[in-house]
């Protein structure tokens, strides 16, 4: 079974991104194009700037130089409120850990993005339950994050990221705190779900087996993308 990324229009067009934190240059002129519907892995050693790149693509950070164009809109020139709105409505995020509110049940956690964008409580809970079922967590709805295993918690996080039907999913080390089996389960589910919903995904990881679920990878090193052999 092979996957053939259908040639599709570029969704993200990043040109000459530059960003520094104090004296450290995190991004030193990064060019990147991401097509709609593909899964991209951003890899590189620690401190290479890959998380920073993700944050810039997602509109969390504003680059000091260069531009990011998403779906025809220039993200890097939007104000914080607009970018926050974009993140809420069109992007989804999965992190390594700590993104679920420990006081809320899994179901409530998943419903939060819908509530934030104005959906009614009942409908939000219904959609959350549906999604949890799709991810095999239909019995975990009432449990709270401390009562779930690492893998289950990450799947709940995935549900929360997808519940608002985002167009792009950003994952920052989604398997970082999981063991091999849990990593595999989460990534399989992630890749399958994302493909079936037609969601574009950008995964930052240092783990090759996680990156293996992507369609292609870029290596970030010292704030730049290594080119020369394939892009």
């Amino acid at each position: 079974m092979t996957h053939t990324p259908a040639p599709s229009a570029p969704l993200f067009c990043a040109r000459d991104l530059r960003l520094s934190f104090g004296l450290t240059e995190a991004l030193r002129g990064v060019d990147l194009t991401i097509r709609a519907g593909e899964i991209l892995a951003i890899m590189g050693p620690s401190g290479s700037g890959k998380s920073t790149l993700l944050h810039v693509l997602a509109g969390v950070l504003v680059p000091a130089g260069g531009s990011v164009v998403y779906d025809g809109r220039c993200i890097s020139t939007m104000n914080e409120a607009e970018r926050a709105r974009l993140r809420l409505t069109e992007f989804g995020f999965v992190f390594q850990f700590g993104q679920l509110l420990p006081d809320l049940s899994a179901l409530d956690n998943v419903s939060i993005p819908l509530l934030l964008s104005g959906t009614g409580r009942r409908e939000a809970l219904a959609r959350a339950q549906e999604l949890l079922a799709v991810l095999g967590l239909q019995d975990c709805g009432d449990k709270r994050p401390p009562q779930l295993s690492g893998g289950q918690a990450q799947r709940v996080a995935l549900a929360r990221a997808l519940v608002a039907r985002p167009r792009v999913l950003f994952a920052d080390e989604p398997t970082g705190s999981l063991d091999s089996l849990a990593s595999e389960q989460v990534m399989e589910l992630l890749a399958a779900t994302v493909r079936s919903f037609g969601v574009t995904m950008v995964v930052v990881t240092h783990d090759p087996r996680t990156a293996a679920y992507a369609d292609r990878e870029v290596i970030v090193r010292d704030g730049q993308i290594r080119t020369g052999f394939d892009l």
Binding site: T2, P208, R209, A211, A212, Y213, A214, E217
Partner: peptide, 8 residues
Amino acid sequence: LERMRQLT
């Protein structure tokens, strides 16, 4: 990585 993708 290409090979790993294939294997996956």
